[in-house]
Every structure is written in structure tokens, then in C-alpha cells.
Design a protein around this nucleic acid. Structure first.
Length: 370
DNA sequence: ACTCTGGTTCAAGACGGG
DNA sequence: CTAATTGAACCAGAGT
DNA sequence: CCCGTCC
């Protein structure tokens, strides 16, 4: 998701804009609130939390992998004094280059956004909602788009009754846009160490304006529309630097050699980048309330068949973490697995192509001649 | 040469018992 | 119609 | 730590 190859490009073109931070440095700063891309989390859990190839589910066949993951991970963060803010950006279904799908996906996105705005008035996020979100995500991938629109019934979201694990309020923004650089940095928590991408320095080092950078992202390939054939990261940068914007580029390249998609919706995509649907953060009150233990038991155990012991235990941890005020020890957080690949990024030079094989960190790396 | 393209492979969560 | 997503990383090959 | 279970 996001922009194709953007991280690599930044590492290449603006290495100074990336700073690696230890997780500990986030304590005491920024009031320990960390925004998390909820869609990415859910995806991760759906993909990774499997048994014999199947997601975990209750006896009715409802998927529970994501609940499992969100539950434990959230608790773990709370235990260590981090206040997570889950951000739903409503990832659209994967787009091929079909124009129809592109349009429909925008509709889906808008519906999701409006639904979340409705949800915002409640200021509560529920596991029910997570469950719904899953249906949206899966449907978007498995069904065709019209079916997806039907399944995504906004009214469903109104059936909020159960207080969520952590009673997270949400801020809405669209991922990997400039607004994610709201505080001048973007956290990339995929792997340790955490990488900070400093947006202003990215622009500075590459030498682009905001708008040019967005056009560059569109050229690299985003979720909303296709790209020009034959234009990859390298040429995209050159072209943007040379011509300044997509319109100019289109006029100055050979459209035979570099055909752009029919009905290329780059302007629409650009619009989404420039004016993302952002909830005004100042109007959103972020709360981390007490868990509704009874509701949680009802939902997680009775309905989703989680172990009651584990859920109650989890509740205890949440409560404890709340009264534990600013107890900021997180030694065991993210269990530094020794095999930490801190040297992943070659800090020096631009020898991006030369990648020495890592030491045998991954045991089963067999070379399989086709 | 350079670099885009398309094929492939791989690993991805969290927990706890032993 | 096999059961199953996604990206990243790597490699081979072709277009310029 | 390794590996099976979680649902």
C-alpha cells in the first residue's frame, strides 16, 4: 500500500531525512501518544495469525484473528505507557487499472470516511467495528466492487454497543500523505529500529515542493491510479525536477514510448493527496477510558469464544496500566530479538544495488535453481 | 549502460508450556 | 478452479 | 529458546 518504492527512494535520495530512533526515545515526548495505521494492523493480523492456513474464527465462522492481535498488542502498548491512537484510513480495495474500479474505490473510500465520521461522534471504537472493518477489507478483495459496496453498510456501524478494548478515539487521515507528516515526521514502525521520515528534509534534500513531491508519488504508483508506462522511480524524479508537474511532463514526453493509462485519474489522486479528508484534530478529544469488562467478556468470550481467563487478565492489565500513571519502563517492549538487523540500511553511499547477503539470520535460505 | 518489468520466493503476531 | 494476502527483495530479461 | 496454540 502507499507509494510504491517510496521508502527506498527516500533512503536513496534523501538519506538525511531518515533518522532511526530507539523506542525508548518516545517516552516523555509527545505525551506518548502514538498514531497507528489500523488498517495495516488488521491486515497484518489477518495475514499472520493463522492456523493451518486459516484465520482464527469462532464456531460461527466469524474471523477473530484481528481481534486477537489488536487485543494483545494494544494491551502490551498500554502496559508500557504508550497511548495508541488507531487511525482508520479506509484502505481501498486493490486497484487494477480498470477505470471502473478506480471510481468505485473512491466511492467506497468516501463511504468509509463518512461512516467513521459518524463513529467519531461516539468517540468510541468497538470491537464490533473492528469486525465490520474486516468484512469491508476482505470483501473489497474477494468480491467485485459492487458487491463490496453493498456489504459495506454504514448502518452496520451504528450498532455500536460494546466498549472497546481501550476505548480509543480516532483521528482520521489518509495514510502516507503529507498530513501524516503533520508533526514533521512519520513513524515507520514496521521493524526496529523505528525510522523517522522527516518530511521537510525530504523535500529539502530532493529539492521538490510539496506539490511536486505529490506528483512524484503519483508517478511512482499509488493506490488510486495507474502510472505512465516506462517511468520508474529514476525517471520520475528526473522528470519532475525538469518539468515540475505531471501536466508538463505529459506534454514533453513521447506518448508512444510512454503511454499513460486511459482516463488517467491522476488529478483526482492528486486531489486526495492535497486535500485529504482529515478530521480536524483539535475537535477530536482523545480518550483512553476504562475497559468495559462486562461488555468485553460478552463480546470476546460469549460471542467470539475467546478464553475468559485471558480476557479478564487483559482487562486487569489495562486497569493497572492506567493507574500506573507515567510509569515508563518498557524494557521488554518489542523484545529486542538479538537478530536485530540494524545494519539493514547501508548508511554510506548510494550503492543501493550492492546488497551483501546477510549472515545466516534466516536459516532456510536455499538457492533453488528454478 | 541504465532501468523498467515481470517472474519468483519468503515472511508476516502474540503467547506460553515444556 | 485446487487454499491463499501482500510487499519487499532478488534475479533475469528486454526496451531505450 | 522452540514450537504449538490461540479461536
Amino acid at each position: 500500500m502507499g507509494i510504491h518504492g517510496l521508502a527506498k527512494l527516500i533512503a536513496d535520495q534523501a538519506p538525511g531525512a531518515i533518522k532511526e530512533q530507539d523506542i525508548r526515545n518516545y517516552f516523555g515526548r509527545h505525551s506518548r501518544k502514538i498514531a497507528i495505521d489500523a488498517s495495516m494492523c488488521i491486515y497484518q493480523f489477518l495475514i499472520a495469525v493463522r492456523q493451518d492456513g486459516n484465520v482464527l474464527q469462532n464456531e460461527d465462522g466469524e474471523t477473530t484473528s484481528h481481534l486477537m492481535g489488536m487485543f494483545y498488542r494494544t494491551i502490551r502498548m498500554l502496559e508500557h505507557g504508550i497511548k495508541p491512537v488507531y487511525v482508520f484510513d479506509g484502505k481501498p480495495p486493490q486497484l487494477k487499472s480498470s477505470e471502473v474500479r478506480e471510481v468505485v474505490s473512491l466511492l467506497i473510500r468516501l463511504q468509509i470516511i463518512s461512516a467513521i465520521c459518524t463513529l467519531l461522534s461516539n468517540n468510541l471504537l468497538t470491537t464490533t467495528y473492528l469486525s465490520t472493518m474486516l468484512v469491508i477489507i476482505l470483501s473489497a478483495h474477494l468480491l467485485n466492487c459492487s458487491a463490496c459496496l453493498q456489504i459495506f453498510d454504514v448502518a452496520y456501524i451504528h450498532k455500536i454497543a460494546i466498549t472497546c478494548i481501550t476505548c480509543i478515539s480516532i483521528v482520521l487521515y489518509i495514510s502516507l500523505r503529507k498530513d501524516q507528516f503533520l508533526y514533521g515526521q512519520l513513524l515507520h514502525m514496521k521493524k526496529l529500529p523505528i525510522q523517522e521520515f522527516h518530511f521537510s528534509r525530504i523535500l529539502q534534500e530532493i529539492g521538490l515542493t510539496n506539490e511536486q513531491f505529490i506528483d512524484l508519488c503519483i508517478l511512482l504508483g499509488c493506490d488510486y491510479c495507474g502510472t505512465i508506462k516506462g517511468i520508474g522511480p529514476k525517471r520520475a524524479i528526473d522528470l519532475i525536477k525538469q518539468h515540475g508537474c505531471i501536466e508538463e511532463i505529459l506534454e514533453n514526453i513521447d506518448s508512444n514510448k510512454h503511454p499513460s493509462p486511459e482516463d488517467w485519474l491522476y488529478k483526482e489522486a492528486r486531489g486526495l493527496f492535497l486535500n485529504p479528508e482529515v478530521v480536524d484534530c483539535s475537535t477530536v478529544e482523545l480518550k483512553w477510558s476504562q475497559p468495559d469488562e462486562d461488555g468485553l467478556i460478552q463480546f470476546m468470550c460469549n460471542e467470539k469464544q475467546f478464553s475468559e481467563d485471558r480476557i479478564r487478565n487483559g482487562c486487569k492489565k489495562i486497569v493497572k496500566s492506567r493507574q500506573g500513571s507515567t510509569q515508563g519502563r518498557l524494557d521488554s517492549f518489542f523484545t529486542v530479538t538479538g537478530s536485530l538487523s540494524s545494519k539493514r540500511k547501508e548508511a554510506e553511499g548510494k550503492g543501493s544495488a550492492k546488497k551483501k547477503q546477510k549472515t545466516g539470520a534466516t536459516p532456510g535460505k536455499f538457492r533453488k535453481g528454478k
